[in-house]
């Protein structure tokens, strides 16, 4: 498409969108509006859904981080889907780069500082990542950021082991087991409680590490899964030497 035409179209889009965002999409304070109705029973409530999340998270889920409670408990099914999107992308990427991986790449020997620093730093990076996903129900963070921090550690490993790369098979096994345990935690909800992904563990003491029922378990599974998936993605994008 011609550049001028593209510019005209995008300026038009900009004007329409900003006009609409500024006048038409007025966000309403959730404490003041948005009273909802249970669509099945028809019962009406005089508060909004987010207000209920904010007020009931403590009793419903035992998590002190409301966003975590929404992500893992109230809208937990979305998160299963989200994990699956990442899994699908990692699978697709591995499928596409299958033959590319086996080409020879020029090897750059990593410098000494990088090599020695990684040995010191790597355990701490993984520790921080694990801390973030284990404390997801208490502090900002959770499985996705924690997994991403661990994957950053993997990136350092890739930079150091230029020829070997990561242990792909072990990553793949970890990823599978983490995914399976997530779905199984959900399915056990059908067995021990009534519904998929419903909490069936004691809520524990509020704001303590061992609290919030299945939330920490799910976040640990997600942390392992995201860490190994992102590691696998980087490994595949890098390419390996087959010796």
């Amino acid at each position: 498409m011609k550049k001028a035409l593209a510019a005209v179209i995008s300026i038009a889009i900009f004007i329409v969108l900003s006009y609409f965002f500024l006048t038409g999409s007025a966000p309403i304070d959730y404490l003041k509006g948005g009273n909802y109705t249970d669509p099945i029973t028809g019962e009406q409530y005089n508060h909004s859904v987010p207000q209920q999340y904010v007020e009931d998270t403590k009793n419903d889920t035992g998590a002190s981080n409301v966003v975590t409670a929404i992500v893992v408990e109230y809208r937990g099914f979305d998160t299963l889907g989200e994990v699956t999107v990442l899994f699908t992308a990692a699978t697709g990427l591995a499928l596409l780069l299958d033959e590319l991986k086996r080409r020879t790449l020029p090897v750059v020997d990593p410098n000494f500082i990088l090599k020695s620093a990684v040995k010191v730093v790597l355990p701490f990076i993984i520790l921080v990542g694990a801390y973030i996903f284990i404390h997801g129900h208490l502090t900002p963070g959770g499985g996705f950021p924690g997994g991403a921090v661990i994957a950053a550690g993997f990136l350092l490993m890739i930079l150091v082991h230029t020829t070997r790369g990561l242990p792909e098979r072990k990553l793949s096994i970890t990823e599978s087991l983490a995914g399976i345990s997530y779905v199984l935690i959900g399915l056990l909800g059908l067995v021990f409680a009534n519904e998929f992904l419903q909490n069936y563990l004691p809520l524990g003491n509020f704001t303590m590490l061992f609290s919030a029922g299945i939330i920490p378990l799910i976040y640990i599974a997600i942390g392992f899964k995201v860490g190994s998936e992102l590691g696998g993605i980087m490994h595949n994008l890098k390419g390996v030497h087959e010796e």
Binding site: P39, I40, V49, F77, F196, L197, N199
Partner: peptide, 15 residues
């Protein structure tokens, strides 16, 4: 057929 998920009635939980 309706099914609630995560043990919360809609629209609080996913339906």
């Amino acid at each position: 057929v309706y099914e609630q998920l995560s043990g919360f009635y809609p629209p609080v939980g996913i339906l």
